[in-house]
Design a binder for these strands. Sequence first.
RNA 1: AGGCUCUUAGCUCAGUUGGUUAGAGCGCCACCUUGACACGGUGGAGGUCAGCGGUUCGAGUCCGCUAGAGCCUACCA
Length: 742
Amino acid sequence: LGASCDWTRLRFTLDEGLSRAVRTVFVSLYNDGLIYRDVAMVNWCPFCRTAISDVEVEYRDRNDKLYQIHYPVADSDRQLTVATTRPETMLGDTALAVHPDDERYKDLIGREAILPIANRRIPIVADPILVDMSFGTGVVKVTPSHDKNDYEAGLRNNLAQMPVIDETGKMTAAAGSDFEGLDRFDARKKVLEQLRELDALGDVKDYQHSVGVHGKCDTIIEPMLSRQWFVKIEPLAKPAIEVVRNGEIQIIPQTWEATYFNWMENIRDWTISRQLWWGHRIPAFYCDNGHMTVAIEDPSSCPTCGSANITQETDVLDTWFSSGLWPFSTMGWPDKTPDLETFYPTDVLITGFDILFFWVARMIMLGLRFTNSVPFSQVFLNGLVRDEHGQKMSKTKGNVIDPLDVIDEFGADALRFTLAIFATGRDIPLAKSRVQGYGAFANKIWNASRFAMMHLDTQLKDAGSIDRDALGTVERWILSRLNETTRDVNKSLSAFRFDEASNAIYHFFWHEFCDWYIEMVKPVLLGKHGSDTDRKQAKRVLLEVLDRSLRLLHPFMPFITDEIWLKLGGVEPSVMVAPYPVAEDVLEDAEADSMIDAVTSMITTVRNVRVERGFTPKDRFKLYVTTSNEREAASFNDYAYLLIELARLTDVIVNTAAPEGAHHDVVAGFAIAIEFPPREVTKEQLEKTQRELEKSRKELAALDAKLANEQFVNNAPTAVVQQAQARQIELRERIAKLEQNQ
RNA sequence: AGGCUCUUAGCUCAGUUGGUUAGAGCGCCACCUUGACACGGUGGAGGUCAGCGGUUCGAGUCCGCUAGAGCCUACCA
C-alpha cells in the first residue's frame, strides 16, 4: 500500500529493551500498590485455559432455551421454581435466593430447599441486590463458583463455594459420579434428562440472550474463581480522562470521545495475568518458604529468607500490557535516549476504533503515569473495511476481500486511493468496482503525463521560473484552478478529511486538467495556433501543473506519481522528499476564471444543442456572442480558436445578429446564438424545448415570489438576495431567448 | 437496558456555521475510434433528501416524535 516505515527502528515485543521497560513498569506499579494478586471471579477461556480481561470478551446473540427447575422446600410439600439457561450449573448451587420483601416467599427465608439430582440441602436466603421480585418467579438459584453475580451474593450471605466445572470446561468430582469428566455442554443434556425423570423440569422456552465468548477462539467464557494478577485501574484512568477532556489529546472523529469517557468512567480492574506459554513472564519470584519478591532483575536467592530455592511466576502478561508502553518503550525508555528526546511525545496515532480500549486507552494511561506526558496529541480512528454492502468480512460469509488480490488486480495506488476517499471515521464498504474506477484514474494520470512528456523538451530542474505577467488567459486559469485545489487539499488534510482532499485532486486532475486544459493547449502545442513564445509558455505551464499535481497526489498514489515525477527530472531524488505544494495568493486569477468559465459553458451548450438536434461532431456550427463590454469582445475574438476547436465551430462572431432559425440561449450572462445547417425539427426536440421552458418558468415564478417577500429581502444576507436577483434577470433573458427558438 | 451513529440517485457515499438550480464514483441510455487515454471522450436520464410534526422569511442541514439499520458498553436469573 505504500506505507512509509523506518525499518531501521523495527521493534519486537520480546526484545531485550522492551522487556526491561515492561519489568520496570510492572515493578513500579506493584510497589505503588497498583498491581495486586488476588483470588477473584475472572473470565476464563476453557479452550485456551487462561484468564482473559473484560475487553477480550465479545458478546454474541444466541437463541437458547430457558429451563424452569423445581426445587422442593425441605420438610414441606411446597416447591420453588427457578429459571436458568445453564442447568448444569445447578450441581454447584449452594443456595436459593428471594427478595426480602417478597410476600410470596417471606416465610421460607432461613429454611432449606432440596437440590434435585444431588439431593443436597441448600439454604433459602434473602438478597435484595441479586433478586428482582418482578422478574420471572422471583426465585434465583445461586451458584457462587460459576457466576459473577452469584459469587458476590455468596460473599454477602456467607455461602459455600462449590466448583463443579474445571479449567478445561469439564465437570469435577463435586458434580457427582454421574457427571464427573463430562464436558459442560454434555453435562447439560444429562442434567436435563435426569430432571425430566425426577419430574423436576418445568417449562422450557425459547430464549434469546447474549453470551460472552473469547474474541480469539469463540469459546463460551466460563466465569471462574482463580488467583490472578490485576491492575488497580481507577488511579490511572482519572488523569487519562482529564487529558481528553481538556483537549491535550484529541480523538478524531470526536464522537468517539463520548465512548471513551463512558468506558473510562466505568472501568474495572484489569486482569493482566495469562496462563499462556508466550509473553512477558511476570517478574514475581516465590521461594520455598512462601515469600514473594517482585523485582526488575532476577534474584538469585530470596531477599526475605535467603533461600536459594526460588522460582519465577509462570503466568505471563496480557499482550496489551507491553503494547500499552509502545510509544516510549520503542524509543529506549526507561533510558533517556536521543530518540525519546526527539520523537516523544508523538503527534498522531492512527488506528481502528476496535482497539480504542485495548490499546489507545492503555497507552494514554501508562504514558501519563511513566512519562508525565501524553503519548500523542491526536488519535485518528479510521473506519473498518467491510464488503460492498457494508457487511463485516468473514470467512463463513465468504465475503472476504484479500488486499493482496486487489493490489494484483488493480494496483496498490488504486486500492490506497479508494481507502482514502471514504469519509473520515466511517466504515468503508469496499467495492471492487470502486477500486477499478480509481485504477482507471491511475491510468488517466499515466496517459496525461505521457501526452505532456511527448511535448516537453526540458527537465523540471532546468525549466526556470514562470513569467506570470506574460501568461495568456488559459495558462492563468489552470494555475489559478490548481492553486485553489492546492488550498483545498491542504485544508482538508489538516482536518483529517482525506476524502475531501483526494476528491479535490481527483476532480482537478481529471475534469479540469485533462478534460479542459489539455484539450485547450492542444492547438498551441500542435502548432495550429499561437506563436513560438505561446508554445514555450504553454509547455512551461504544462510542466508546472504536472509537477504540482503529482506532488499533491503523491500521498494518495505514491507509486505512479513517483514513477512519473522521476521522468520529469526534478531536483529532489524522489517526489517523496519534494516539498508538498502550498497555495500562493499570486496565482489566484478571478478574471481568467470567469473568462474560461464563460468559454467552457458556451462549449458545453453548443455540444448539448448538437446532440439534441441530432447532429454529429462532423457537423460544424457558427456561434454568435453578444457583449457590450469591449474588453470581453476582444477576449472572445482572441479565444475564438478555443471555441472553434472544442465546440467544433466554423466561426465565432461577436456582436452581430444571428440569422433566422438559430438557437438562442443565455450562457454565463452572455446572450449567444448557434447557427446550424438546416434540418427538420423533430417532435421530441420540440417537446424538449417546451420542457426546458416550463422548467425555467417554474423556477422564475418561485424566484419572483421569493423576491416579492419582504421578510426574505430584509432578513436574508445581501449576497443571497443579490444572487437571487441576478438569477432572476438571467432567467428572464433565458426565457425570452428560448421563446425565440419556438 | 444505556450510549453513539446512520437512513440523500439503481448501488456505495459526499453535502462545512440553515441561504442560488441537492453533488461524486460505479451502473444505465445515446452518440463518437477526434493526434495521451475505449481503463477513453461528449451529451443525457434518474432524487417528494425514511415518515410525521415543529422552529424560521427560508430546512437535506436545527428541535421533537415514529419506523428501520449498524456500532459500543453493560447484562437480566
